[in-house]
Design a protein around this nucleic acid. Structure first.
Lengths: 199, 199
DNA sequence: GTCTATAAGATGATAGAC
DNA sequence: GTCTATCATCTTATAGAC
C-alpha cells in the first residue's frame, strides 16, 4: 500500500477518534509512519488531506446502509433492519456525524460537502422505503415520509450522543428500540383509509 | 461583574461554539478582556476553567425543559410541548450535547460528569411524563417508557447533527415533527387492553 | 518520492513586579 | 487581584539535499 493511501487511512481514523481540528499533521505521520516530506509531497496542506479523508469516511459508511435498505424483505422489515443492525460502535461515535461538531469542517465547503451529501443520500433512501411501506399498507399513509426518515436518522445520530454521555451503549440501543416500537405500533393501527384493491 | 464570572461566561460561549479542545486560554481572555494574570489567579489551569464552564452550560440548559415537562397540561401535551418548543438554535448545536464529541471532555471525569448528569436528569423526567401519559390512557402502555424517553432526546440531539450537515434548520424541525406525528398516531390507537374504570 | 533541517506563530503555563 | 515577561512545546508548514 502506497504512502498516499496510508496517509488517508490514518487521517480517516483520527478524524473519527478526534475530529479534524484536533488532529495534527504530526499525529497522522506518527500513526502511519510516513515521513514529513512524503506527506507534503502527496498533500500540499492539512486541509487537502482532510478532504480526502472525509470523502473516504463518507464513502466507507454508505454501502452498509444501502445493502439493508435496498436489500430483500418488505419495506417495513428493511426499515426495522436498518434500525436494528449491530455493526455500530456507539461509544466511538459516528465517523460522519461527528464532523458536524467541528467548526473547521462546517465552515469549509470542501470538507462539509461529503458529509452533507451522505445525509442527503440516506434521507432519500429512507424516505423512499417509508413511502413503499405506506404503499404496501405497512404504515399509515397519513404520516409524513420525510419527517419519519429524519426521525430514523436522528434516533441513530442522537443515540451516539446519549451513549457517549452515559459511557454506556444502552441508550443507543434504547432509542433505536423506541423507534422500532413506535413503527410496529402504528403498523398495527387499523388503517382509517377505505381499503380498495384498485381505483 | 467580576473577572471570574466573565471568564466562565466567555469559556461557556466558546465551549458551545468550538468545543473544549479547540478553545485556547488566549481566546477566552480576548473574548472577555481579562488579563493573563487574572485568569491564572482564578483558575490554576484551562481544565479548571473548563469544569466551571461545563457546569455553567449544563445548569443553564435544564430549567427550560423542567418548566415544560413539569408545567401545566396533560402528560402527552407536555411531551409534545417539549418536542415543539421554539427556543433552539439548530445550526449552533447543543451546548451540552456537543461536548460528547470532544475526546478531551469524554476522557476527563470532571468534565464529563455534568454532561452525563444532565442527560440522566432529562431521561428520568421524560420517562416519568411518558409513564403518566400511559396511566392517563394517552399512550398505550404496551410501549416502553425508557425507550421512548431516549427516542425523544435523540430526535433533538440528532436533529442538530442533521441541521448542521444540511446547513438548514429544516431537518431539526422535521425529526421532531416525526416524533410528534408518531406519538399522536399511537395515542389514537384503540387500546388493545380491556377498558376498565377500576380493578 | 522521501529525507532532514528550519521557522514563524500558537499553546498552556510560570515568575515576579505592582 | 492584576500586569508584563518569559518559556518549553506543538503546529503547520517551507527549503533543499538525496
Amino acid at each position: 500500500m502506497g504512502s498516499r493511501e496510508q496517509l488517508v487511512d490514518a487521517m480517516s481514523d483520527l478524524l473519527w477518534e478526534r475530529g479534524y481540528a484536533a488532529t495534527s499533521p504530526r499525529a497522522v505521520r506518527e500513526r502511519c509512519g510516513v515521513g514529513q516530506g512524503s506527506m507534503y509531497y502527496h498533500f500540499p496542506s492539512k486541509r487537502d488531506l482532510g478532504v480526502a479523508a472525509v470523502e473516504h469516511n463518507c464513502s466507507t459508511l454508505l454501502p452498509g446502509s444501502v445493502d439493508i435498505l435496498e436489500g430483500p424483505g418488505s419495506p417495513l422489515e428493511r426499515l426495522i433492519g436498518y434500525l436494528t443492525r449491530d455493526d455500530h460502535e456507539p461509544l466511538k461515535g459516528c465517523k460522519v456525524g461527528r464532523l458536524t461538531q467541528d467548526p473547521e469542517v462546517v465552515s469549509d465547503p470542501a470538507l462539509l460537502a461529503p458529509v452533507k451529501n451522505s445525509f442527503a443520500t440516506i434521507h432519500t433512501m429512507l424516505a423512499g422505503v417509508i413511502a413503499e411501506a405506506m404503499d404496501a399498507g405497512e404504515l399509515p399513509d397519513s404520516l409524513d415520509a420525510d419527517h419519519l426518515a429524519d426521525l430514523m436518522t436522528t434516533s441513530i445520530q442522537g443515540g451516539y450522543v446519549l451513549a457517549i454521555a452515559a459511557q454506556d451503549r444502552a441508550p443507543f440501543d434504547s432509542a433505536r428500540a423506541g423507534a422500532v416500537d413506535l413503527l410496529r405500533a402504528v403498523s398495527m393501527t387499523p388503517s382509517p383509509q377505505t381499503s380498495r384493491k384498485d381505483s
